[in-house]
């Protein structure tokens, strides 16, 4: 069943069109990686689907309903976002930050319900943040902060989780930790995950399908083994690569070729 459908979307900022006539569908429960060079329109795509910017033309459907037919809280109960590193400058406690994820379920005058507390505790545990819950967010490491932001997004109990390079500041250990968590959520809770990724190998390893963007257009939207084609990558990223197969997972593996070797 398709959960998200973009129909001929053009989008961008004031007068500058970044995305051009983009159409694609996402099935419920899929794990999609969005890849492409800098300036390809990946973040614009995420902002457009999450209603941060309005498309110039085209329609976006969530469960066959136009996303602009939902009110602010309704959309937040269905789509949650995790950004590169959320800039939090106020010294809130971790639990308070995660509780903010329950905002779309709260009415103006009612306080936190028992259900809210239950969900927050569950998500703290799931993301391994339960030991951090009384710490101040500003005193955490980047990896811990990112887990808290994911916990907050999960507290929204979304159907779709959007991530914008969630692990770009993290070491390989924490990268794997976060992606293993995402895979688990994807499998166990059937959350549809759409993540922008720069690391092509992470993308190949974890995603069901990859969406390759360049200059605001979809170049290819297919299985990782069909998207990570060395000729295509060399053309789009303008560099030499070799695509091999990861011996453990049998997924495609992209090897970079450095400049002085290219001349040989």
């Amino acid at each position: 069943m398709e959960i998200l459908k973009l129909d001929n979307i053009s989008s961008g900022y004031s007068n500058k069109e970044i995305l051009k006539n983009v159409s694609f569908k996402v099935q419920r429960g899929e794990f999609i990686g969005v890849i492409g060079p800098n300036g390809a329109g990946k973040s614009t795509l995420m902002k457009t689907v999450t209603r941060v910017i309005k498309p110039f033309k085209g329609q976006i459907y969530l469960n066959n309903k136009n996303i602009y037919c939902f009110n602010f809280k309704e959309i937040a109960r269905r789509i949650a976002c995790v950004r590169q590193e959320s800039f939090i400058s106020f010294s809130y406690k971790v639990r308070d930050i995660v509780m903010m994820g329950r905002f779309p379920y709260q009415s103006l005058l009612a306080g936190e319900s028992k259900e809210d507390v239950k969900v927050v505790n569950e998500m703290l545990k799931l993301t391994d943040c339960d030991k951090l819950s009384d710490r101040e967010i500003l005193n955490l490491s980047s990896g811990e902060k990112q887990r808290v932001v994911i916990a907050r997004a999960l507290a929204q109990e979304p159907e779709i989780l959007f991530l914008d390079e969630p692990t770009s500041y993290l070491d390989i250990g924490h990268q794997m930790q976060i992606f293993n968590l995402l895979k688990k959520l994807n499998k166990e809770k059937n959350i549809t995950i759409i993540s922008i990724l720069h690391d092509l190998n992470l993308a190949a390893e974890y995603c069901d399908k990859l969406l390759l963007l360049n200059n605001g257009e979809i170049i290819r939207y297919d299985l990782p083994s069909n998207v990570l084609d060395y000729k295509l990558l060399e053309e789009i990223y303008n560099t030499l690569v070799v695509v091999k197969e990861n011996p453990i997972s049998n997924k495609p593996y992209v090897v970079l070729v450095s400049g002085n070797r290219q001349n040989k």
Binding site: K47, T50, R51, V52, F72, K73, I75, A76, R77, I79, A80, C81, R83, S86, F87, I88, S89, F90, Y92, D96, M100, G101, F103, P104, Q106, L108, L109, R152, Q156
Partner: peptide
């Protein structure tokens, strides 16, 4: 006082606040 929760969330930034359901 009626909108303190919204004000708390706004301190995270406009885009995160929007994605958390704040108008």
């Amino acid at each position: 006082m009626l909108y303190t929760r919204e004000l708390n969330i706004l301190t995270l930034g406009d885009e995160p606040a929007l994605n958390l359901g704040v108008n």
